[in-house]
Design a protein around this nucleic acid. Structure first.
Lengths: 195, 195
DNA sequence: TTGAATAGTCAACATATGTCGTATAAGCAA
DNA sequence: TTGCTTATACGACATATGTTGACTATTCAA
């Protein structure tokens, strides 16, 4: 099908309107019920134009959330790995505060009627960021038998899982951030209190 | 809309045919391209009948995978938490062997064009099973400040993340199972070799 | 300022969707 | 067996989808 030059200022304007429109709609209804027709109407764009930019609503909404996802991944990668286990580092606290503040959106995206594309994108971004961090020498010694990619995927999945859990259960960030950090730092040992 | 009695033998037969048909199709094409029309044709069922059982293809395919998901959750919950960190327990090895053997399906389900419903269902099943396990007293001492639900969600997410990673990267089970176990047992400590 | 390139609009299309009402037939209970 | 219940088939419908080709108007370079 016909595509479009993403650099063109006209295209950029249209994309911006589409992103705003889809976030607008997603705040009010389930993703699956957002029709391309309604979207085009809301963005004041012709229906056919939508297809010049995105193959489907899923791709659009994922792109609209790209900034947010990048910010989350950045925050996660900023955490000093050697921070004390009983005190979550600042970036992680801010991350969970951000999630709690936007719980509605994360619930919509990561819930059963959410977007597989968004979830996959989030995991991927986190995995890439953490892999970069680990290969950059940030990983403590003694982990050479665990592939870096698996380690990163483990943490990325864990974070997404905890986020999904907290936004549905309403767990507050003062509780979720330290819990996550504790789990991250200590794993599940029989005697977790020793080092 | 109109529903149907799931106990009725006619309904059970139809459901079985629908599940078989959707797994059949999912083995060959992207989920999003599976139309209700093609599905009904394959299952030799009237198109309207599909809607008597499932609201959409997503719900159908998730239901068709229910047994598989349950088996994964069961295997995960079977792992003895105090198994040595350098030796993954049997159920976990079998779990990753199963995943590797069905990598194609897991890739389709958990990938960017997969099913949010399936992923959420998998995380939920795992979370429930692990929560049951933990509240049953299986959790080691010293974890009282971490809510059981968060702990379970952390591990459920981590497992899904690692599975998704391994099926896309082609990591072999002899590598992924020990790596996961090691991560699970030890967390990310600066000096991981002590207990 | 002019003109070529192309993003967006518009109407039209074949197909898919979700939902009807009605007819048929499978299941079940007396 | 008979008769009630209800799952499925079938045809029809309004709407949504994804794509096309022709037209309009914005952008940008010469």
């Amino acid at each position: 099908m016909r595509r479009v030059n993403p650099e063109d200022p006209r295209a950029q304007r249209t994309r911006a309107r589409l992103k705003a429109a889809v976030l607008d709609l997603a705040a009010q209804q389930e993703l699956a019920t957002i029709t391309v027709s309604a979207l085009a109407r809301r963005a004041e764009v012709n229906r056919a134009t939508v297809y010049l930019h995105y193959p489907d609503v899923d791709a659009l909404v994922t792109d609209a959330m790209e900034e947010t996802v990048a910010a989350v991944a950045r925050a996660a990668a900023l955490c000093p790995l050697d921070a004390p286990r009983d005190r979550a580092p600042g970036p992680l606290e801010e991350l969970f505060e951000h999630v709690a503040a936007n719980a509605h959106m994360y619930r919509r995206m990561l819930g059963p009627h959410g977007s597989a594309r968004f979830a996959a994108r989030m995991r991927e971004r986190l995995t890439v960021e953490l892999t970069r961090r680990f290969t950059g020498g940030a990983r403590p010694a003694g982990w050479d038998d665990v592939p870096v990619g698996v380690h990163a995927a483990y943490l990325a999945g864990a974070l997404v899982g905890v986020i999904a859990h907290c936004v549905t259960e309403g767990t507050r960030p003062e509780e979720s951030a330290p819990a996550f950090w504790r789990l991250f730092r200590t794993g599940c040992q029989s005697t977790p209190d020793d080092r």
